[in-house]
């Protein structure tokens, strides 16, 4: 089911397959999922570049800084 879903080209059809898989996983939990947290970053007010959304090198999704984007002034 999972392998088949990965091969589906149409993004919406692919998502639909994954929704079914996710529902099956919720029905028979392989782990217990709790809450997606509301994350935040805390920096001094002299830090610039925290709002950069490009070239993030994947890190903001982990809530950790990509220091290349940051500066102080």
């Amino acid at each position: 089911m999972i392998e088949e879903a990965a091969a589906v080209s149409d993004p919406e059809l692919r998502r639909e397959r994954y929704r079914k898989i996710s529902a099956a996983a919720a029905e028979d939990p392989a782990q217990i999922y709790t809450y997606q947290p509301a994350r935040f970053s805390a920096v001094r007010d002299w830090v610039r570049g925290l709002d950069a959304t490009d070239n993030v090198n994947n890190l903001r999704l982990n809530n950790f800084p990509y220091f290349y984007s940051l500066s102080k002034s």
């Binding site: 999922y33 709790t34 997606q36 994350r39 805390a42 920096v43 809530n63």
Partner: peptide, 24 residues
């Protein structure tokens, strides 16, 4: 954190994190 003087907190949407999970 949000009440600290001179500190800026930036709230983020519900990103990719699943938060805490209990693994069997």
């Amino acid at each position: 954190a949000k009440d600290l003087d001179g500190v800026r907190v930036v709230e983020q949407p519900f990103y990719a994190s699943l938060g805490e999970v209990l693994f069997f």
